[in-house]
C-alpha cells in the first residue's frame, strides 16, 4: 500500500508541473504585456516599468521566471495585490470559505446522489427511476447561474427561508443555499452514474451468490452491489472537486460569497495577474491532491487495483 501510494504520488508530479507551467505560460508568455496592462495601457515611466519587471521576475529568462514562481508558490511568497495586500493573506482569508462551500456541495452530491442513484438503479424503469432521470436531465440543462438566480429569488427573497446573500464571515448555515446550487449539476451526474453502475452490477454473479447464501437484501445492496458500483462515482467526485472550485466563480458571484472564486474573478477583471496565477496554482494543487485521494480510495474499494 505504501509503494502504491508512493507510485501514484510520483505520477501526479508531472501533472502538477505541467499544469502550472501551462497557466504561467498562458499568462506571461503570450502576446500582450502584463506590465503594460498594469498601467491600464498608458505609458509608464521607464524606471517604474523596470522596477515592476524586476518585482515579478519578468526581466529573467522564461524558465527562470517559472522556477521562481514555483518556489514562491511552495513558500507561499505570492507577492502583493494592487491594493498592497499580501496575496497569501488574501488567499488565506478566502480559502477556508470556498473549502467549506466545496465540502458542503461535495457532501450534498455524494449523499443525495448515491442515495437517489441506488434507488433509481434498483428500480430501473419504474416511475421513481423515470422521474429522477427526467429531473436530472433538466438540472444538467439549466445553467448554474440561472439555477442560482432562480433559487436565490424563490428561496431567498420570496419565501425568505435563507439569506439571499452571504455575510462577510460566511458561516456554515448561510452557505447551505450556495452549496446546494454549486452541487446541483454534479448531483445530477452522480445520480445518473450511480444508477447506471448499480443496474449494471445488479445481475452480476457475485450478487446472485450473495442472495443465494441467504444474505438480507440490505446487506446485498449495501455491501456487495454498492461497494462494487462506487468506483466510477468516486472518480467523478474526485475530479469534480476541481470543477467545484471553478464553478464557485459563478456561484460565489451570485451569492456574494467572499471565497476563492470571487477573488479570482475580481482579479481577472482587474487584470491582477500575480493573484490569478497564484490562485490557479493553488487550485491545481487541490485538484492533484484530490486525484491522489481518489486513487487511494480506489485501492480501498477494489483491493485488486493495489497489485496492478
Amino acid at each position: 500500500m505504501v509503494m502504491f501510494t508512493f507510485r501514484r504520488f510520483l505520477q501526479l508530479i508531472p501533472v502538477f508541473f505541467g499544469a502550472t507551467l501551462l497557466v504561467y505560460f498562458l499568462v506571461f508568455a503570450t502576446p500582450g504585456d502584463p506590465i503594460a496592462a498594469l498601467s491600464g495601457g498608458k505609458p509608464m515611466a521607464p524606471a517604474v516599468e523596470a522596477a515592476l519587471r524586476a518585482q515579478y521576475n519578468l526581466d529573467q529568462p522564461f524558465w527562470v521566471q517559472y522556477g521562481l514562481y514555483l518556489k514562491n508558490l511552495v513558500t507561499l511568497n505570492l507577492g502583493q495585490t494592487f491594493s498592497g495586500q499580501e496575496v497569501s493573506a488574501v488567499i488565506g482569508r478566502a480559502y477556508p470559505v470556498t473549502a467549506r462551500l466545496a465540502v458542503m456541495a461535495l457532501a450534498f452530491e455524494a449523499i443525495f446522489g448515491v442515495f437517489f442513484g441506488v434507488i433509481a438503479g434498483l428500480r430501473k424503469g419504474k416511475l421513481f427511476d423515470s422521474t429522477v432521470l427526467v429531473a436530472s436531465l433538466v438540472v444538467i440543462a439549466v445553467p448554474t447561474f440561472v439555477l442560482g438566480f432562480v433559487l436565490q429569488l424563490v428561496i431567498g427573497v420570496q419565501l425568505g427561508w435563507a439569506k439571499p446573500t452571504v455575510s462577510g464571515t460566511a458561516p456554515w448555515n448561510q452557505l447551505i443555499l450556495p452549496a446546494l446550487v454549486l452541487g446541483l449539476v454534479s448531483l445530477a451526474y452522480v445520480i445518473r452514474l450511480t444508477r447506471a453502475s448499480i443496474s449494471e452490477n445488479m445481475n452480476a454473479d457475485y450478487v446472485r451468490t450473495a442472495t443465494a447464501k441467504g444474505l438480507s437484501r440490505r446487506r446485498v445492496v449495501v455491501v456487495h452491489i454498492l461497494r462494487n458500483s462506487l468506483i466510477p462515482v468516486v472518480t467523478f467526485l474526485g475530479a469534480d472537486l476541481g470543477g467545484l472550485m471553478g464553478g464557485a466563480i459563478v456561484t460565489e458571484g451570485i451569492f456574494n460569497v467572499p471565497g476563492i472564486g470571487n477573488l479570482l474573478y475580481k482579479a481577472i477583471l482587474n487584470g491582477e495577474t500575480p493573484t490569478v496565477v497564484a490562485v490557479v496554482g493553488m487550485l491545481v494543487i487541490v485538484f492533484v491532491l484530490a486525484n491522489l485521494v481518489v486513487d487511494l480510495l480506489y485501492a480501498w474499494l477494489d483491493p485488486r487495483i493495489r497489485y496492478v
Partner: peptide, 13 residues
C-alpha cells in the same frame, strides 16, 4: 495536464 484545469477556469484565463 489540460484536464487539471476546469473548462470554465481555463477558458476564463
Amino acid at each position: 495536464i489540460f484536464f487539471a484545469l476546469p473548462l470554465i477556469l481555463g477558458a476564463i484565463i
